[in-house]
Amino acid sequence: MKNSLFLILFLLFLGPVFGQVKKHTLLLNTGTQNAWERDFAYSPLIYKGSNAGFTLGFSSEGEKKTDEVYIHYSRLPLQSQFSAEMKATHASIMTYTFYKPNWLPEQLNLGWSNNNALSLRNYQDAQNFNPRFDFHTSFGPAVRYQTFFGKNQQWRFASQAHLQVIGFLFSASYLTSPPDPFLHEQSTFNAFMQSIRLFQPFRQHDLGMLNQLFYQLSNGNEVGIGYRWHYTSLENAHRSQRSGGHYFFQLNFKL
């Protein structure tokens, strides 16, 4: 059931992309992810650590428009300065849509982005109401700079950033893991609808950046390295914050 839902969501995100005649690329990356996280419902302390992170992505590039989808997953053993432990699980589906208006320099694209991110926090010392969680869906503007260089223009550097300001939030309650509407008897749908909060500009933040350097092989595929950074600050019953930097090695397969 979970796998089917995942596939449907994935296809939904890819649908608009496949619908156009464009240059399609499948991308895979892995590398070290450094992260810190803080949930004031449990502790004012920062928990930090690192582990491997994975991304599966797809891009569709046309003359005037580029669509990108990235699915990230990481599971991180984090520690406070007092060696208390927390297991953090991060999963997200991030999309970018960039446009190339004539009035902008060729290297610069403007567009928008959407992030659908889940964070689970399992504190070792908390015997009840574990894990705490946040899920948010947010939208906002994005910008990309891309340039080619080298003797045969085989090198490509791309840097893109996003700042998300609207959307909605679904997260753990004042005390318990499930949001309060799930604690009394009513349909799951009603409880879910009552649990959703607006993602308010300047009160909630989701911002990030992706820098990548690629070398194009003779078959058109690319190998590269990159750094992805994100910062999220959410406020519902309590404030939670997290940030991560993912240093990765990436393969791009031309489809």
Binding site: A35, W36, P44, I46, Q81, N211, Y227, Y231, S243
Partner: peptide
């Protein structure tokens, strides 16, 4: 610039109380 923006997560990490 790439080098500067690397390790952003550490640069913006808040301090413990």
């Amino acid at each position: 610039l790439v080098l500067i923006v690397s390790s952003c997560e550490e640069i913006i990490q808040p301090k413990d109380p």
